[in-house]
Simulated assay, not measured.
Amino acid sequence: MRQLGWITSVSYGRVHFGTSKAGAVTVPRFSTGDVDALPEQHPEVDWAHLRSIGKGQRSPLAALATAQETPTT
């Protein structure tokens, strides 16, 4: 999983998706205060565009995660 590391989860929970035979998955939970503070902390992101991304479309944040994961020499 790619992570930007901008916020840290406060806990984890198990979630069942419909009648999936895969069972439950563990998902991180984040505080609303941390999520609400992101636009102010990261003005370089076009938040309006990010919110308009439709289902199945790649998030522009994916490119940021890849850039941060690639070490520079």
Rank of each mutant, 00 (worst) to 15 (best):
L61T: 01
H42C: 05
T72E: 14
V27Y: 07
E44A: 05
K21R: 13
Q57L: 07
D34Q: 05
W47S: 03
Q68I: 08
T8H: 13
G5T: 03
Q57C: 08
V10N: 09
V27L: 14
S20L: 07
H49N: 10
A63G: 11
V35A: 02
G13V: 15
G56I: 00
T32M: 12
R29P: 00
S59C: 07
S9R: 09
E44G: 03
Q3K: 14
G23Y: 07
Q68T: 09
A37Q: 05
P60D: 03
T32L: 15
R29T: 08
P28N: 05
V35I: 09
E44S: 06
T66S: 13
I7C: 00
H16F: 12
Q41H: 11
V15H: 13
G54C: 07
M1S: 12
V15F: 12
T70H: 10
T70V: 14
V15E: 11
Q57A: 11
A24N: 07
I7P: 00
P71N: 10
P43M: 04
Q57I: 03
F30T: 00
D34A: 09
V15Q: 12
S31R: 06
V15K: 10
S31Y: 04
W6L: 02
G33D: 12
G13R: 11
P60I: 03
P28E: 01
T26E: 15
K55S: 14
L4C: 04
I53D: 02
S31W: 02
R51G: 05
Q57T: 06
H49L: 12
A48W: 08
H49A: 15
T66H: 09
Q3V: 11
D34C: 03
A37H: 05
A65L: 01
V27D: 08
H42F: 06
T72W: 10
G54Q: 11
E69W: 07
P28V: 01
Q57N: 11
W6V: 00
L64A: 04
D34Y: 03
G5H: 07
Q3R: 14
K21S: 14
F30I: 03
K55N: 14
H16S: 14
Q41M: 11
H16Y: 13
H42E: 02
L38R: 01
T72F: 10
A22Q: 15
W47D: 00
Y12F: 14
V25M: 12
L64P: 00
Q57M: 10
F17Q: 11
A67D: 10
P60A: 05
E44K: 01
Q41T: 09
Y12M: 11
I7M: 03
P28S: 04
H49P: 00
S31G: 05
V45D: 02
L61S: 02
T32I: 13
R2P: 07
M1K: 08
T19A: 13
L50C: 05
T8N: 12
W47H: 07
H42K: 08
A63P: 01
S20C: 09
P39D: 01
T70L: 12
P39N: 05
G54T: 08
D36S: 06
T8R: 12
D34F: 00
S9H: 13
R14A: 15
R58H: 11
K21T: 11
L64T: 02
R14W: 15
T73P: 12
G56N: 08
R2E: 13
K55G: 08
R14H: 14
